[in-house]
Design a protein around this nucleic acid. Structure first.
Length: 589
RNA sequence: GCGCAUGUAGCUUAAUGGAUAGAGCGUUUGCCUCCGGAGCGAAAAAUACGAGUUCGAUUCUCGUCAUGCGCACCA
């Protein structure tokens, strides 16, 4: 199906052509909704080329096409705007067609692509903290939007599981439990299958070891050695590493599940290791990489640069691999396994330089297909109300688990205050609504900017918040349930939406028909916040309609059915949009 | 030092180069016998500063100021 904008664009384009003008006609939503619904500024854009006043061109075009039934009114306005109101019939046809379409008229114009989304950013043996929230939430939404557009999408958590942190943990473990067989050099047998620590011990070990390494040079040296041993395949180190991975993956999965974020792949930096040596040697051989100050680097300067970029380090002077090496080798692995058309990395925007280096090196060394897209989606910091990075009250790093629990609690209190429901249902509802508050609060801001996390504002049931959107959906559900209880209720799927009969109904429909365009621009621009804006607008339009129109009490049965059909479509569009944001909706709240 | 990003009502924020810069919170204020008032109205209130390009600039260019961030063996 075509969107209404497509239809209008076609008609107006033909109008320009019939009048002898060559113009790239763009129809946009009116920014003067008091005057019209859509506008076309094409006449102004081409006026110069044809040496005519823009309003004369607009007049001519309007005269040619004004009889088309899609318009209720089309007028030319000085200095050269073309203002358009759509006809009731066109609108009714459009919303009815949307109701019958699985994706409400949305079609991605591109061919299906294979897309890898690298998000999450978790590290083994370290608990998720608030810094991990944005990558998970934004990445999950980006992934869902990519999928919805018809792409084959693979999300990879890409664990940090191979760095110095592992050596630190191993050495700290040695200091704590030297009696473990892993530290007995003469031990020849099989290592135990049971991990010598629990997740909470593991999470306690890392920060201690990290602190110690900064104060104790000898300890740091041992940690470096242990890291190197692990990376060169030492059995004991490898055995401990396996335990660390098992224990922390299990815990991370649980935490991501709590966020309703899931990954197709649980790969990590370690998986890229087998590709590193060949890759680096190959780059040296081709003359792309060269030795500099003992390290191996790739120059990434390009002709068009107007600033200097530091070279990309791919091998340290001691022979070890680095962050960039690992990401490059991961590209090698992904090319081999999936040959993707597009890579999307969701990470803190402070890593932008790193990704520029990696992307340029990957292109220069032909690691990726020349037509593969490499996209870095950098996001800003989540700040507290003071405008500084979010911390706990005593200034520490806040665990994600704690943050989720805080917001869940805030929502829970409000729910039990207002509704009577069973304890189980209240708990479950609070979980869903709390997550919605958290995710919507994050996603409603442009990803690239820093934003301020305000628990009270985000968990409020009023204003532009997740709970408000959910409330609107729940309200629609409630009305539809009542309708279904009525003896003469007709099947909702079969209902048609009639021509509008009041202003708020029209406003609601005009919001609904934007769906396809909104989703398309959210897809093209990697911009979940546009979906947030949209569902807020739809929710407001619905509440306006609800307030001014009796739905269940409507006495004209045809009108009533039409209203029911309309709010069904509204509900479905809201739910579909929420799903693209990774937000669930409860039955009641 | 070099580079990048960001400056929009008191606060949090939106706006493919278009007409009167759109919201939420807060403030002042009107509306509940009504399908879920967690709602619907009204009012006051903003593009950091200065140039330039353009018929038209929050948007593009340059400069100034402010803030944040990044700049070779951490990830």
């Amino acid at each position: 199906m075509y969107t209404l904008i497509d239809q209008i664009t076609k008609v107006v384009s033909e109008g320009f052509a019939q009048c002898g003008y060559e113009a790239d006609v763009k129809i946009s939503l009116s920014n003067r909704p008091d005057l019209c619904e859509y506008q076309c500024n094409g006449a102004m854009a081409i006026a110069k080329a044809y040496h005519k006043a823009p309003f004369i061109i607009a007049d001519e075009v309007v005269a040619k096409i004004s009889e088309n039934p899609v318009f209720e009114e089309i007028v030319s306005v000085k200095p050269g705007f073309i203002n358009i109101k759509v006809s009731k019939q066109a609108l009714a046809d459009q919303v009815t067609a949307m109701k019958e379409d699985e994706k409400f008229g949305y079609r991605n114009s591109e061919d299906a692509k294979t897309v890898i989304v690298d998000y999450g950013g978790a590290n083994a043996a370290k608990p998720l903290h608030v810094g991990h929230l944005r990558s998970a939430v934004i990445g999950e939404s980006i992934k869902r939007i990519q999928k919805y557009a018809g792409n084959k999408v693979i999300g990879d958590v890409h664990l940090g599981d191979w760095g110095l942190q592992m050596g630190l943990i191993i050495e700290e473990l040695r200091d704590r439990k030297p009696e473990l067989v892993y530290f007995d050099e003469s031990y020849q047998g099989e290592y135990p299958s049971e991990a010598p620590f629990t997740i909470s011990e593991l999470e306690e070990i890392y920060p201690v070891a990290s602190k110690k390494s900064k104060e104790d040079a000898a300890f740091m040296e041992r940690a470096h050695q242990a890291t190197l041993k692990l990376q060169s395949g030492d059995k004991a180190c490898r055995a401990i590493w396996n335990h660390i991975m098992d224990v922390s993956k299990k815990d991370l999965k649980r935490n991501y599940d709590n966020l309703n974020v899931s990954f197709e792949l649980w790969k990590g930096e370690s998986d890229a290791q087998p590709y590193i040596d060949t890759m680096v040697e190959d780059m040296i051989e081709k003359g792309i990489a060269h030795e500099s100050e003992g390290a191996v680097v790739v120059d990434i300067a390009e002709e068009s640069d107007n600033k200097e970029y530091p070279p990309c380090l791919v091998r340290k002077s001691d022979g070890a691999a680095l962050y960039a090496t690992s990401d490059l080798a991961t590209l090698v692995e992904r090319e081999k396994d999936y040959n993707p058309d597009r890579y999307i990395y969701t990470a803190d925007k402070r890593q932008e330089l790193h990704f520029i280096q990696v992307f340029r090196t990957a292109r220069k060394a032909n690691i990726v297909n020349s037509d593969a897209e490499l996209k870095f989606l950098g996001f800003g910091t989540m700040n507290g109300k003071d405008g500084h990075p979010f911390k706990t009250r005593d200034g520490g790093v806040m665990r994600l688990q704690v943050l989720i629990e805080d917001i869940r609690k805030a929502v829970y209190d409000r729910i039990v205050e207002n509704r009577s429901m069973s304890e189980d249902e209240a708990q479950e509802t609070a979980r869903i609504v709390g997550l919605a508050a958290l995710k919507y609060g994050d996603l409603s801001n442009q990803a690239s900017k820093d934003y301020i996390f305000d628990l009270d504002a985000f968990s409020s049931f009023e204003g532009n918040t997740g709970p408000y959107i959910l409330y609107t959906v729940v309200r629609i559900k409630s009305i539809l349930n009542r309708y279904l209880e009525e003896s003469d209720a007709a099947k909702i799927e079969d209902l048609k939406i009639n021509a509008v009969d009041n202003a708020s109904m029209k406003a609601l429909e005009l919001s609904l028909i934007k769906y396809a365009d909104v989703i398309q621009s959210a897809y093209k621009e990697y911009a979940p916040h546009k979906i947030c804006q949209y569902i807020y607008e739809v929710s407001n339009a619905f509440n306006g309609f609800y307030h001014s129109t009796k739905i269940l009490a409507e006495t004209d049965p045809e009108k009533k059915k039409s209203y029911i059909a309309l709010i069904t479509l509204t509900r479905d569009i809201l739910l579909a949009s929420l799903d693209l944001l990774g937000i669930e909706c409860p039955e009641r709240m």
